[in-house]
Amino acid sequence: MKTAVIVFPGSNCDRDLAVALREVAGEAPAMVWHRESELPEGVGLIGLPGGFSYGDYLRSGAIGARSPIMRAVAEAAERGVAVLGVCNGFQILTETGLLPGALLRNAGTDFVCRDVDLTVASSQTIFTSRFDAGEPITLSVAHHDGNYFADDETLDRLEGEGRVAFRYEGNVNGSARGIAGIVNESGNVLGLMPHPERMIEPAHGGTDGRRLFEGLVEALG
């Protein structure tokens, strides 16, 4: 399957994400610079990497979300192309409006950088098919602005529609209802703060992240 990773100035997990996609999808992704206005032909999965695009100026992800390539990403998402936004990628997805809510400064004001225990809240998404609902998994987080916020109506809708993909076990950053990752209404866009690309091999300390990519590649065929 053809994949692409969008690279913004200040992205710093783009190569990790590229390695994960190459390992699991069997083909290195196209690395697409944010100034491009078109995606390569036939891309079935787009990754928005972690990092600090534009130095988090104005708001985390705000400037990156207005990059030329994001119009093409939004159009692709509209057509049903899968989009995975990790950390800063999640912030960019909320800033573009492809996912609801916003990511605020962590409630404790600390930058949180450690492995965290998560629960898979739904196994009924293309991103979580290799997990069981309610299963505990471990992934790394490294963020300052991961405190998920949305109004109660939006949170109720996300929960009611099974769109919460991952939740934190315990309070990591103050996120509303412990939300660590959500999908869009069509289920083809996932944003999450933890880094699945950092748990691909046993030497990373775990392989729970690899299962996300494996399930996704399988689902996309």
Binding site: T109, N147, F149, G174
Partner: peptide, 10 residues
């Protein structure tokens, strides 16, 4: 209603 941890730190 939006938590402002920076304001709290100040």
């Amino acid at each position: 209603g939006v938590l402002d941890p920076q304001g709290k730190a100040i």
